[in-house]
């Protein structure tokens, strides 16, 4: 279906884009993708190793940079009873690893109206009563590829400390590995999303200066200035650009004012 023009690459083999190559002298190692053996270069990530082996991802690849949660992968190592969890785009292959991607895991999500809800822990408890099925086994934390203290934030929510839970869960990429391992069948990452939005909207103090600026914009304060800028010649703009005063690096926000205040 899709086609990539690989012929434009130079005859000498070089790594272009994300296509992996086998550098001179590099060793290959065996990995098992869903039980099937492939020889791949060592030092590659699971994602690039699978592509090297010939897989083309549809599900199971997203940002390729460790932040979108599309490529959670579960694996075991030879002779080791433990389960390991990682992102395919971030985890380096090891010899004889047995892996499977889990690009999707079903999890219950409660709908709510952010404008209408009451910003208290009881709201969260009512939307997700299964929170209290948590047995504190800590499998969620062990399964998190981002190192989030999942059990700790679930406990904080149960105890009513939404601010703590919001901060503890901040690095969550919503891959769903926590939910996949949960005895109590909790959708941890959906609960955390709700809590962070309650925190951001209702608990964290609002920015007063922002509210003031929005009123100024809506009153049309800057319309004439922006109109004038749009009509300016390159030379006039360049002159203004060069004359800009630069806010000092170490000045705390809100403390410094420029000498020229006519455009504020």
């Amino acid at each position: 279906m899709s086609h990539h023009d690989s012929k434009s690459a130079s005859p000498m083999q070089v790594a272009t884009g994300d296509r992996a190559i086998l550098p001179e002298g590099a060793r290959t190692i065996p990995i098992y993708v869903m039980g099937k053996r492939y020889e791949v270069p060592e030092t590659l990530t699971i994602m690039k190793a699978m592509e090297y082996a010939g897989f083309k991802f549809l599900r199971g690849a997203g940002c390729r940079g460790g932040i979108c949660g599309a490529c959670p992968t579960v694996y075991r190592k030879e002779g080791d009873y433990k389960l390991y969890f990682g992102l395919a785009c971030q985890t380096v292959v090891e010899p004889n690893m047995y892996l499977a991607q889990i690009p999707f895991y079903p999890a219950n999500r409660a709908k709510y109206d952010i404008e209408a809800i009451s910003p208290v822990a009881e709201t969260v408890h009512a939307l997700y009563p299964e929170l209290f099925r948590c047995v504190a086994c800590n499998n969620c934390t062990k399964a998190c590829p981002m190192g989030v203290e999942v059990l700790d934030y679930i406990s904080a929510i149960k105890q009513g400390d939404l601010a703590r839970a919001a901060h503890l869960s901040f690095d969550c990429i919503q891959c769903g590995m926590c939910a996949s391992r949960c005895m109590g069948e909790l959708p941890q990452y959906h609960v955390a999303q709700l809590v962070r939005r309650i925190y951001g909207k209702y608990i964290q103090p609002r920015a007063a200066h922002l509210e003031k600026r929005v009123v100024e914009i809506e009153s049309g304060k800057y319309d004439a200035m922006l109109d004038a800028l749009q009509k300016m010649s390159h030379e006039e703009l360049e002159k203004l650009y060069k004359e800009r005063e630069r806010e000092p690096d170490m000045a705390p926000p809100g403390t410094w004012m420029p000498e020229d205040t006519q455009y504020l």
Binding site: A207, H209, L210, R213, I217, Y222, M225, L226, L229, R244, E247, P253, G254, W256, M257, P258, Y263, L264
Partner: peptide, 9 residues
């Protein structure tokens, strides 16, 4: 958003 700044800048 800050006082020392504006859409002009």
């Amino acid at each position: 958003t800050q006082e020392c700044d504006s859409p002009f800048y």
